[in-house]
Design a protein around this nucleic acid. Structure first.
Lengths: 154, 154
DNA sequence: AGAAAATAGTTACAATTGCAACGAATAATA
DNA sequence: TATTATTCGTTGCAATTGTAACTATTTTCT
């Protein structure tokens, strides 16, 4: 008897993760987009800047797991919409420091409860123990995945 | 005291799911692509056809959670590469029935062990209990997410 | 100091993806 | 049975995304 030769797609973790993540992302981004004209990249940028103002684009990229081009474009649109403001860093004039404008803080304040409610609804049917396990597991898997296949990290 | 007004991105499940799924997908698709010139959509199509031959494109779409355009394109390329063969359904000449060619089965047989090994490595640092919890949780979350936000299903 | 290498961020171009319209075939209805 | 509506799958076009090249600035090395 040789190795198993078939693979059932819906028991394959990478596949299930991808499907789940897509459904969740689509649902959420639909809501952001519809109500606030926010894309997911924009929302991510808002979220990190709300937590930590005066980050550079590169720092935003780090913390959002987005690449620098995506950040650049999201920031460009947020600047156009006056939801973010930018000033050039005194010390290093290549860098620019980003922070939310009043308008940006306002949208953010409206989106956060929506986001948290969605998450709460989503997790509602899980037991406390399962939630904890998922939490732990995602953390471990993120580490592990990064070890196994850096992929872009080249 | 009012509702919490900030959200830490790396504790937000939709975000963490998205990051994890991207890392995993990129790692895997890198390997498929490099070794076999297979994209993820192509791989998904191969996988379902290996399990269940003579599906129509629409049926493939259902089972892979891909939309019909993506399936159409993946199938088109797989036909060009002679990894899949197609015949028109006798009963309904709009439908075409797809199945793997010998070449298709061959790639598939090579990819499966790679895929399973990757999954195994990924899950290795989790305890048995955590693995079970993750399994259960993903299943429940998929259901729940579908309920909350059908999004496209409109 | 001056030249070369590195870094921040943007822009241009190519590839991918999603949506809407379409042609072909079948099913449903009058 | 003729007419209309529906389904299967593909194609064209617009929007999104990724890669590489580029400008401006700063750092490093000689």
């Amino acid at each position: 008897m040789t190795k198993a030769t078939t693979l059932e797609l819906d028991r394959f973790l990478p596949y299930r993760l991808s499907v789940l993540s897509n459904i969740v992302s689509t649902a959420i981004s639909g809501a952001y987009e519809k109500r606030f004209g926010l894309t997911i990249p924009q929302w991510r940028v808002l979220a990190v800047l709300a937590m930590t103002p005066d980050l550079s684009a590169a720092e935003v990229a780090e913390r959002t797991a987005m690449d620098k081009v995506a950040v650049s474009r999201a920031v460009a649109s947020l600047l156009r919409e006056r939801r973010v403001v930018r000033r050039t860093a005194r010390a290093d004039r290549r860098r620019s420091l980003l922070r939310l404008s009043a308008a940006g803080r306002k949208v953010y304040a409206q989106v956060v409860p929506m986001a948290l409610d969605y998450e709460k609804d989503l997790l509602a049917p899980l037991t406390r123990k399962d939630r904890e396990a998922v939490d732990r597991a995602i953390h471990i898997l993120l580490d592990r995945a990064a070890q196994i296949g850096p992929a872009h990290t080249a």
